[in-house]
Nucleic acid binder design. Structure first.
Lengths: 139, 139
DNA sequence: CAGGATCCACCAGGATACTG
DNA sequence: CAGTATCCTGGTGGATCCTG
């Protein structure tokens, strides 16, 4: 089953392999901006300005840059309405919707499990402090 | 609105807000190394060396650094067996397993949809080239 | 084997200014 | 409104050397 297929068909892509192109794709679609933007578009099409308001704190550079990548990857469509002033809508493609479902759970996980993570950090830091004290006492 | 809840209960965490701590958590757990490492641990405990082999191409710095973060966040446990040479096993916690399920689908998505993304890129680049030619002809 | 410590290159990404 | 262009800096992350 592990047959490499450079052309067409279903290849044996494996992101564990450093040389596999899917590794770069994984690197590209992982990241908070992609997550936040794709999830925001999950509820339906949004204009550029709406998107920048929804994903608070994103710079226009990162917003535009991320949207271009997503558009190039076929995850979102960019629709320009040549009115005055111009209007641009971004919408998830079928492909993008699939990823959106995953990222949606991802964002939700972070929000839902933050307190558990935060308390784990507290325990970890307390234990580290204890070890430091012990080391000092022993040293 | 957006009342922050420092203590207990279910807060109104929202990663869309730049100031929300979940935004930083999202930023932390997004990223290829976290994804690859957590997914690798999804099949069961692994030693440090096994992990570095499984996640091909990861530097020991990034591997260690990422594992420390995951341990601090309560996503993995680090078990040291003081033999000679020393042996260290990493294992997902319950919390980590939950995230692992999501990231698993994430990695799988990248592998499964790479060809669709790749062909979309081809179309995008071809279209961009056309537009450049048109612009040059018109200019 | 499982790291810690260091140096350094690169670039992600914010701030700012300008445009159709 | 929806970008583009440029400058600049902090941090990511690889390479390398060292240790228990």
């Amino acid at each position: 089953m592990a047959e490499q297929r450079p052309q067409g068909g279903t290849a044996c892509y494996d992101a564990y392999l450093a040389s596999c192109p899917t590794r770069k794709l994984l690197d590209e679609i992982a990241g908070k901006w992609v997550s936040l933007i794709v999830v925001a578009l999950g509820d339906g099409p949004l204009r550029y300005s709406d998107l920048s308001r929804q994903v608070a704190g994103v710079s226009q550079k990162m917003l535009t840059q991320t949207l271009r990548v997503l558009e190039r990857d076929g995850l979102v469509t960019r629709t320009v309405t040549p009115s005055v002033p111009a209007r641009v809508d971004y919408e998830l493609t079928t492909l993008g919707t699939g990823l959106g479902g995953l990222l949606d759970g991802f964002k939700a996980w972070a929000e839902h499990n933050f307190e558990a993570v935060d308390s784990a950090r507290g325990r970890y830091d307390a234990r580290s402090a204890d070890l430091t004290i012990e080391a000092n006492a022993a040293g």
